[in-house]
Structures are given as C-alpha cells and as structure tokens.
Computed example of a mutant assay.
Amino acid sequence: MSDVDRNVGGLDRTGRIVVGLVAVIAGIVALSGYWAVGIAVGIVALVVGAVLLVTGTTQKCPINEAVGVDTTE
C-alpha cells in the first residue's frame, strides 16, 4: 500500500488496534454469557472492535478520508 492510500498512522493506529482488541474481547465475553451486559452491547462491542482493528491494521479509514483527516506522520 502506498503512502497516498494511508490515512491512519502513529498513535491513532496504535490506539485503534488496542481499543479494537479490547472491544472484540469484551464483545466475545458478553456474547458468551460471562459478562452480563446484554447481547446488544456484545454485538455492538464486537462490530466496533472489528472496525477499529481493520482500520488500524490497514491504515485506511473511510471516515478520515471523507472529512480530510490524515494522521500518518
């Protein structure tokens, strides 16, 4: 992937990956019944976590692109 295609980097990328992992784990724990927050919260956590992981690892965020934000350094 060329630098032109990327718009997520630095602390933004690291934060997305870390928070994404935590959210995915929380979603799995909630959906498996070990955390009584409800199925809806588990699903939302799982989806949000997955989106953060994908945008962090690919370094490409469509929302950043739409609003003209580039956190690569």
Score class of each variant (00 low, 15 high):
V8K: 03
G68C: 06
V37I: 14
L52P: 00
R13C: 00
V8L: 04
P62Y: 02
G38I: 04
C61T: 02
T55M: 03
V37W: 05
A30R: 09
A23F: 13
G10D: 06
L31Y: 09
D12E: 12
W35R: 03
G27S: 10
V41D: 08
D70I: 10
V18A: 12
Y34K: 09
A26L: 15
V19S: 12
I63M: 07
A36F: 14
V44R: 00
R13M: 08
G33R: 08
R13N: 01
T55C: 03
G10E: 08
V4Q: 08
V47A: 11
I28Y: 14
A45P: 05
G42M: 04
A66Q: 02
D70W: 11
G68F: 10
D12K: 01
N64T: 00
V51D: 06
L31M: 10
V24I: 15
Q59M: 08
C61E: 02
V24E: 15
P62Q: 00
V44D: 01
V67F: 14
D5C: 00
P62L: 06
V47E: 04
G10Y: 08
A26P: 11
G49M: 05
T55Q: 11
S2Q: 00
L31A: 05
I63L: 13
G27F: 11
V8N: 02
T58M: 11
V69T: 09
Y34T: 08
G27N: 09
A50P: 06
I28N: 08
G56I: 06
V4R: 06
R16Y: 11
V37A: 01
V4Y: 04
T72D: 00
G9A: 12
G20V: 08
N64M: 05
I43A: 12
V48F: 14
G38A: 01
I25Q: 14
C61Q: 01
D12W: 01
V48N: 08
S32I: 11
G42E: 06
G9K: 12
V24F: 15
A40S: 13
T71C: 09
D70A: 10
V51T: 04
G56A: 07
V54I: 13
G9H: 12
V54E: 02
T57G: 00
A40H: 11
T55E: 15
A50M: 12
W35L: 15
D70L: 11
A30C: 12
D5A: 13
L46M: 15
M1Q: 03
L52C: 05
V24K: 14
V41C: 03
A50W: 08
I43Y: 11
C61V: 01
L52K: 00
V22R: 07
N64K: 11
M1C: 02
T72K: 02
G68W: 09
V19F: 14
V37Q: 00
G10L: 05
D3G: 15
L46Y: 13
R13W: 03
V22M: 14
I25A: 15
V29K: 11
Y34M: 06
N64Q: 09
T58C: 07
Q59K: 10
A26D: 08
G56Q: 02
V18K: 04
N7F: 13
L31T: 04
V69A: 06
C61L: 03
V24T: 14
A36N: 14
T72S: 02
E65T: 12
A66D: 03
I43R: 09
V24L: 15
R16T: 04
A45Q: 02
G20L: 06
A45V: 00
V51M: 11
V54D: 03
L52S: 00
V29R: 13
V18Y: 07
E65L: 10
A40W: 15
G27H: 09
